[in-house]
Computed example of a mutant assay.
Amino acid sequence: MQFSLWLALLGAGTLISFTPGAGAINTMSNSLNAGFRRSLWGIFGQQAALLIHIVIVALGVGILVASSPLAFNVIRYAGAAYLVYLGIRQFLARPALDADRAQALRDEPRWSMFRRGVWVNLLNPKAIVFFLAFLPQFIRVDQPMLPQYLIAAATVVVIDIVVMWFFFAGTARSFQRFTRDARGQRVLNRIFGVLFVAVGVLLGVIH
């Protein structure tokens, strides 16, 4: 991949990562509940899903999903339903006033956060369609494809990890002062719950 083309990919990938979405909301929620450092496991899960999307596009399956209304809608509604479920659960979550329950939230298993991150990003067919339109802009068909896709995947993943962790998870740390009492926790739970539901509804209704 030419250096100028890689710089264009770097700039575009950075702008895209800063766009708020389900991944950003999930990262901020993890940072608040489990802590800034441990939120990284949810981010890793989201990157695993991004890599799966890239592989799907590279193999050409993305074209099938994009051209099949049934396949696209099944995945779209499944993703929307999952985000709405996460939002309702967050909205109804009880404040963690006692030390044991607060510690339980902070000690959520890494695999649990990783798995949730995978599903949040994986159940988003628009990501497949997006990568289908986005990645080919930076791939030269007259050069070996595999090295180019590897460079593109590594670039996109590293950018997203940095933005998610240092920006979105870091931003959530400024909200932690609101988690010291029941009212603050309830407000934050409802805010993030509504955001999850809103993203899920948008995913379900916007074509």
Score class of each variant (00 low, 15 high):
residue 43 I to C: 08
residue 45 G to A: 08
residue 46 Q to W: 03
residue 46 Q to K: 02
residue 47 Q to C: 09
residue 48 A to D: 04
residue 48 A to M: 08
residue 48 A to W: 06
residue 49 A to D: 01
residue 49 A to N: 01
residue 50 L to Q: 00
residue 52 I to H: 01
residue 52 I to Q: 02
residue 52 I to P: 05
residue 53 H to R: 03
residue 54 I to V: 06
residue 55 V to G: 00
residue 56 I to E: 00
residue 56 I to C: 00
residue 58 A to V: 01
residue 58 A to L: 02
residue 59 L to P: 04
residue 59 L to G: 04
residue 59 L to T: 07
residue 60 G to V: 03
residue 60 G to S: 06
residue 61 V to D: 03
residue 62 G to E: 04
residue 63 I to N: 12
residue 64 L to V: 14
residue 65 V to Q: 05
residue 65 V to N: 04
residue 66 A to T: 08
residue 66 A to D: 04
residue 67 S to Y: 14
residue 67 S to T: 15
residue 69 P to N: 06
residue 70 L to E: 04
residue 70 L to Q: 07
residue 72 F to L: 08
residue 73 N to F: 05
residue 74 V to E: 02
residue 75 I to T: 00
residue 76 R to H: 14
residue 76 R to K: 15
residue 77 Y to H: 11
residue 77 Y to G: 07
residue 78 A to L: 14
residue 79 G to S: 09
residue 79 G to Q: 07
residue 80 A to Q: 10
residue 81 A to C: 10
residue 82 Y to S: 08
residue 82 Y to M: 13
residue 82 Y to T: 11
residue 84 V to W: 09
residue 84 V to T: 07
residue 84 V to M: 11
residue 85 Y to P: 06
residue 86 L to F: 13
residue 86 L to I: 13
residue 86 L to K: 09
residue 87 G to M: 05
residue 88 I to N: 06
residue 88 I to S: 08
residue 89 R to D: 11
residue 89 R to A: 14
residue 90 Q to T: 14
residue 91 F to V: 14
residue 92 L to H: 12
residue 94 R to S: 15
residue 94 R to H: 14
residue 95 P to H: 15
residue 95 P to C: 15
residue 96 A to H: 14
